[in-house]
Amino acid sequence: MSTLTDAGVTPEPEAAVSRRPAGAMMRTALRLWRTRIGVALVALLVLVAILGPAIAPHGPSEYFGLAPNAPPSGKAYFGTDYIGQDVWSRFLDGGREILVMAVLATALGLVLGTAVGLTAAYARNILDDVLMRAMDVILAFPQIMLALVVVATVGASETLIVLAVGLTTMPRVARIIRGAAQAIVERDFVAAAEALGLPRIRILMREVLPNVLSPLLVEANLRLTYSIGLIASLAFLGLAPNPNGADWGLMIQQNRVALGTDQPWGVLLPMIAIALLTIGTGLVGDGFARAAAGIDRGRGAE
């Protein structure tokens, strides 16, 4: 045997950072204050959404003898809304639905978009073109427009809104993942797997997918932010799945007329909640993006 031992005389400085890039990215991200604030905001609003109904003093659609647009009082901490329901109780009750729908829609868009993006990038042939042209067709509508068209015909239902938001999220995810995966499928380790004759699906899942996890995580946060905004906007436009239920977006729409009066809480509470939620997910996404960029730089410096 040769006398050679390349054995690490000194470890590379960046080795520790990029050991497990997806996990390392999250750890790096969590060291940034913006990520921590974001996580705290999201956690707070998730708590409100989960625990809210339990601690609400009144039912969301309960009438308890106060006039519409009553100012805050001991009976209704934030006053009553345009038809005399308790603003505080409706606020506590209105977060769950939007959160569940946004998470489901985003997850749907991510799974479909990742599948399409990876397949297109790896195919490098007519399939790539066909898939991406199909994505272009969906991209030719603003997200909210397509949701509106569908809802206009069938009517607003939870399933339909999740489907509409998820399907319009798909092409946006697909483009990002395809872009990231295009660089990966050209790398030699994919060729090495091909030369060994590894099945395509295993190449995609084991060789390519783990290498696009960082952009996928960043994109997931961005998409969640937009999905929340989109679903809230639909409700604001009067297309909540349940027109009588408590829903933050719907609350803003319904109580808008009271804005000029001394009873703005029906608008302000849900608006602050939506703003903090989207800012929270936005901050987390930005933290992830920064961490990912930092890791990539470290790798590029070699």
Partner: peptide, 28 residues
């Protein structure tokens, strides 16, 4: 295509790539 070759042929011919920075999956 490598994929259409029998398993024993794929085993018999092996390839070492130019750039070791690209030929190893960084996630494995």
């Amino acid at each position: 295509a490598a994929r259409s070759r029998p398993r024993d042929v794929r085993r018999s011919i092996q390839y070492v790539f130019q750039n070791p920075y690209g030929s190893l999956n960084p996630r494995r």
